[in-house]
Design a protein around this nucleic acid. Structure first.
Lengths: 107, 107
DNA sequence: TTAACAGTTCACAAATTTATGAACTATTAA
DNA sequence: TTAATAGTTCATAAATTTGTGAACTGTTAA
């Protein structure tokens, strides 16, 4: 049988996008590097929770981090992440538009 | 507070990519339309399981389906899906390459 | 009508993911 | 040294996702 482990690895990377908080982090991190506390300021919530989400994203290769003194800075590992995320957002928008136009047709 | 429901919707679309079987389905469906049974032939597994995965993908707007007689045909809802998926695959490959080059440096 | 075929739905157990708060580590300042 | 700050780790309970097989629906053929 064909080896499917590449699909598991690929899905693991995609899982790093599969949570509202993590999508928000990508949104906030678009293009720039930001410290943990700045991200926390923008997203809100518990810092333990944010730390866990960030660590998932770093482990899956979506983000990279570096430590400077007491602070840890995060950024997207590549512009590809932002592009992929943007495409998925468009798929969502397309779907919402289609639903809207179906509704308009019915009235 | 800022409204975050767009992040939830966006993450829901991304969740449709977050499973090995669903990544395989996208891979198999690249560019072409295919019937349920053809997809089942290629991916293997239980048909009830495949049917559930396909229904998740249709509901999230990743796939569209049409019925013709006894057969149901599926295709990607847009080339954007394939492009996003490909970008995430590249993020994975980049990560694997980086790990590889770190290993080479150590020996 | 009955049987066969294609696919979906359902119930449920198992696995995975998530949020929370407490405890912990590391760095800087007093 | 002690205290404060920044962030991580850990345990655990709750929520969500997943795989399985049986039952079901709809379509075609005999």
């Amino acid at each position: 049988m064909k080896d499917k482990s590449i699909y598991t690895l690929h899905a693991d990377v995609c899982k790093a996008l599969a949570h509202a908080i993590r999508i928000e982090i990508i949104d906030v991190l678009k293009g720039k590097e930001m410290s943990f506390s700045e991200i926390l300021e923008r997203t809100g919530g518990l810092k333990s929770n944010l730390s866990q989400h960030l660590s998932v994203m770093v482990n899956k290769g979506i983000l990279v981090s570096r430590k400077n003194g007491q602070n840890v800075f995060f950024k997207l590992s590549s512009p590809k992440v932002q592009r992929a995320c943007h495409l998925m957002r468009e798929v969502l928008i397309d779907k919402l538009n289609k639903h809207q136009s179906i509704l308009n047709h019915k009235k």
